[in-house]
């Protein structure tokens, strides 16, 4: 629950950041397009499996809020005209989506899956989304490096985004110990750790700047 709330909180902080400042400076559209793709490919089970009201509501919330972020940065004046396309240069299709798709296909085939049923495709999309989520923050980290000086709200949103997966690691350890029959998803574990590690450097400078109480900037 804490992990999920960190995730929700990061989304709220980002929406605030966009709507209050009415600009998208220092924000990577590509990261949010990747997240939208992650949620759309992971939550196809909204139509096939019901887990709980909480689970379904959160899924819809993630898809809706991420769509609204992408919409605001792409199309909504005056936010969209402040979006700096020239700084957001990570080639996300070639270096994120394509490799994750290949990896998901390989994982699926190696673990004995086929490609001929809806459930197989659904399973493969799910695996793809796990891989893609782990690196979806990369375009944002690149933009951050370019701007160097990070606005408070932008820093906060990335901090909560990172904390969310870090807390999931705690959740996996807890469930593995205390929940009989909890099924291990090693791809999820691996990607969750990778995802958290990608934030490590950022966490360090973020916490240092909070301690100093000064402006938050990244080193050269």
């Amino acid at each position: 629950l804490c992990g999920d709330m960190c995730h929700v909180f990061s989304i709220i902080v980002l929406l605030l950041r966009l709507r209050v400042a009415r600009n998208a400076q220092g924000i990577s559209l590509r990261t949010h397009e990747l997240f939208l793709l992650v949620f759309l490919t992971r939550y196809t089970d909204l139509f096939t499996t019901f887990y709980s009201l909480y689970n379904s509501v959160m899924k819809v919330l993630y898809i809706a809020s991420t769509s609204s972020i992408v919409y605001a940065i792409r199309l909504q004046e005056p936010i969209c005209s402040t979006y700096d396309r020239a700084q957001d240069t990570f080639r996300h299709w070639a270096f994120a989506v394509a490799p994750c798709a290949v990896l998901a296909l390989l994982t699926h085939l190696i673990s004995g899956g086929s490609l001929f049923s809806f459930v197989d495709i659904q399973e493969m999309l799910w695996t793809f989304s796990i891989y893609l989520e782990s690196i979806a923050i990369l375009p944002q980290l690149i933009v951050l490096q370019r701007f160097r000086e990070v606005e408070n709200l932008t820093g906060n949103y990335i901090f909560f985004m990172g904390s969310y997966r870090a807390l999931y690691i705690v959740n996996w350890i807890f469930r593995a110990y205390y929940e009989p029959g909890y099924r291990h998803h090693y791809v999820v574990y691996f990607c969750g750790v990778l995802q958290t590690l990608l934030y490590a450097d950022f966490f360090y400078y973020y916490l240092m700047s909070k301690r100093r109480g000064g402006k938050f900037s990244l080193p050269t």
């Binding site: 995730h7 096939t48 499996t49 459930v119 659904q122 799910w126 999931y168 998803h185």
Partner: peptide, 10 residues
């Protein structure tokens, strides 16, 4: 194997 109840996390 079908998507079971094991994908209950977000």
């Amino acid at each position: 194997e079908a998507m079971g109840m094991d994908k209950d996390e977000l």
